[in-house]
Computed example of a mutant assay.
Amino acid sequence: MSENKQLEHNKPENTMSLLSRSLLTGFIGGILWSTIAIFLYYFNFVEVSPKSFVLRSWLKTDWTDSWLGDLVSIIIIGLLSIVTAIIYYGLLKKVKTMWISVVYGIILWGIVFYLLQPIYTNIPKLVELNTNSIVTSLCLFILYGTFIGYSISYDYHDTQVEQL
């Protein structure tokens, strides 16, 4: 066997497609950043817990205030995060700059805290939140958007280079 064929034979195959890696990135991003958001809530950096959005707006039971409510909300946010990854993958994966990911996080923050606020009846309006909550949650969403967006874009461009 020639040396080139030997090298190709020893090269590990990429078992996951770019889309499936993007979905996994979305899920992991949701899990990671919602866990950090819960810690920020417990340490009083933000007034609103992630479980207030995904659980407490619809369920008024005791278990939603416990660690089980936190765990369920982290998993739900991880699953919802797959949708944000699909949107980024479909619209922005070819963009090479990190700044579009930052803007994506800001847009997501605006959607959650401004556009969807009427759905969350137990969440204070944006103007009623203190400055620390607004700044911390905005920074958290920027980091979340950057994690999802830049990871997907980097993976897309890395895959393009490998195929050349």
Rank of each mutant, 00 (worst) to 15 (best):
N44K: 11
F45R: 09
F45A: 05
F45N: 01
V46L: 04
V46I: 12
E47T: 11
V48C: 05
S49Y: 04
P50E: 00
P50V: 03
P50F: 07
P50Q: 05
K51C: 00
V54Y: 05
V54M: 13
L55P: 00
R56K: 12
R56I: 02
S57D: 05
W58M: 02
W58D: 00
W58R: 00
K60T: 10
T61R: 10
T61M: 10
D62S: 12
W63F: 00
W63Y: 07
W63H: 05
S66E: 10
L68A: 12
L68Q: 11
L68M: 13
G69H: 09
G69C: 04
G69K: 11
D70T: 08
V72Q: 04
S73T: 08
I74Q: 08
I75Y: 05
I75V: 15
I75R: 00
G78M: 06
L79C: 11
L79D: 04
L80G: 15
S81G: 10
S81R: 00
I82K: 07
T84L: 13
I86D: 04
I87W: 06
Y89A: 11
Y89P: 04
G90Q: 10
G90E: 08
L91H: 01
L92H: 02
K94N: 12
V95Y: 07
K96P: 08
T97C: 12
W99Q: 06
I100D: 08
I100L: 15
I100M: 14
V102L: 05
V102M: 10
G105C: 02
I107M: 08
L108Q: 13
L108N: 11
W109D: 00
W109R: 03
G110D: 14
G110Q: 13
Y114N: 12
L115Y: 15
L115N: 08
Q117S: 12
Q117G: 03
P118R: 12
P118V: 01
P118D: 08
I119A: 07
Y120T: 14
Y120D: 13
T121C: 07
T121E: 15
T121N: 14
I123S: 11
I123R: 15
P124F: 03
V127L: 15
E128G: 07
L129Q: 07
L129N: 07
L129I: 00
L129K: 01
N130Q: 10
T131K: 15
N132H: 13
I134L: 13
I134W: 14
V135K: 14
V135N: 10
V135D: 06
